[in-house]
């Protein structure tokens, strides 16, 4: 690990000021950042410890939603009684991710900002446009079983690894950030950037901007499901995952909020898919049509071709479970 200056921030204003410096990173849970620093994939010159800031706690908002402090751990968020009752898809997604030890450390803000697990991003002996802009992409013709089929570019086919963020996107979460120019809210829908020709820039955050909270709208109701397909049954990243909030009224789909993990460079959501489902009677043919729309521009790269049919089947399984008549 390269040497760095360690700064323990006493308040948010100080953190934001220090965080805007060159080659500076915030650290909270540190479970991803320190791993990458050990491998020198990331080598910040300064790290700003934000764990002593007052950014914990989960509060109810005026419109019945939740404001989740950026430092709330994945464990605490998954176990929160209000989340379990009103936003169960979020609890489920969190519990499907990582291990007990990691969930105890990983924070809400950090989880959103975790980096891809693309093998070539981690391997400094290989070119990677995300790690070293302009060096090329070894994943394209390499081992790409775990990588993306949607939203990619010729420069990068990395996936975003989070489970939590997939559920949050299905729920329509917003991200509250504080920067040197004040506080702003960003819809999670507009938080991540596609790789295009700058895969090293992953979000719309400005240098020094600090995530202070995630805001969930009032409970969406419906049936909430998080289905994760992976290579082993615990402690593995998603090959494909689906977060679904679906409501059926009088035999027709009244609401469908769907987000997908393992498919793209960000938790994926496609309004066209949801539009095709709403107002229709659930059927295998309808689910297939929804998959056609979702996967219209999907492109495999050899090793991950299987994700296209796997996504179709996983979506059909989730929609069929979500719309089946209550037993």
């Amino acid at each position: 690990m390269r040497a760095f200056d360690y700064i323990r921030a006493g308040d948010t204003a100080q953190a934001v000021r220090e965080g805007a410096g060159q080659e500076t990173r915030f650290i909270a849970g540190g479970t991803n950042l320190l791993d990458l620093m050990k491998l020198e994939v990331m080598a910040p010159e300064r790290i700003v410890d934000i764990t002593r800031l007052d950014l914990g706690g989960i509060e109810e908002t005026q419109d019945g939603g939740l404001r989740i402090g950026a430092l709330v751990t994945n464990s605490d968020l998954a176990a929160d009684a209000r989340v379990r009752r009103g936003w169960p898809v979020l609890s489920r997604a969190l519990l499907a991710g990582a291990s007990g030890q990691l969930r105890n450390k990983a924070t809400t803000g950090g989880n959103l900002l975790q980096r891809t697990r693309c093998y070539y991003f981690y391997d400094r002996g290989e070119p990677c446009n995300k790690r070293e802009p302009g060096s090329g992409c070894a994943a394209m013709g390499g081992t790409n079983r775990i990588l993306a089929i949607l939203g990619t570019s010729e420069h990068c086919i990395a996936t975003h690894p989070s489970d939590m963020a997939v559920a949050m996107r299905a729920l329509g979460a917003r991200v509250e950030v504080e920067g040197q120019d004040g506080t702003r809210e960003i819809a999670l829908d507009a938080f991540y950037r596609l790789p295009a020709d700058t895969p090293h820039i992953e979000t719309v955050l400005a240098p020094g901007e600090l995530i202070t909270a995630v805001i969930l709208p009032a409970p969406a109701g419906g049936r909430q499901i998080y289905r994760k397909v992976r290579d082993r049954s615990s402690y593995a990243f998603a090959l494909v995952s689906v977060a679904a909030v679906v409501e059926v009224e009088n035999g027709r789909i009244a609401k469908a909020q769907l987000a997908f993990g393992g498919l793209g460079p960000m938790p994926w959501r496609d309004a066209k898919v949801e539009k095709a489902l709403v107002g229709e009677a659930p059927s295998p043919a309808l689910f297939d049509r929804a998959a056609d729309i979702l996967l219209a521009e999907a492109r495999g790269h050899g090793g991950n071709d299987f994700k296209i049919p796997l996504t179709r089947r996983t979506l059909a399984a989730v929609l069929s479970q979500a719309t089946e008549a209550a037993a």
Binding site: Y6, R8, I27, G30, T31, L34, D35, K38, D49, T51, S75, S99, G100, Q101, L102, N104, K105
Partner: peptide
């Protein structure tokens, strides 16, 4: 593994189990 994958380094901090390899002592 020293990368949070194996759990051999697990300790209990403030009542919570964590991977001690993936956190800095100074924190």
């Amino acid at each position: 593994c020293d990368h949070g994958q194996c759990g051999a380094c697990t300790v209990i901090v403030e009542g919570r189990r964590i991977n001690s390899c993936l956190t800095l002592a100074c924190m």
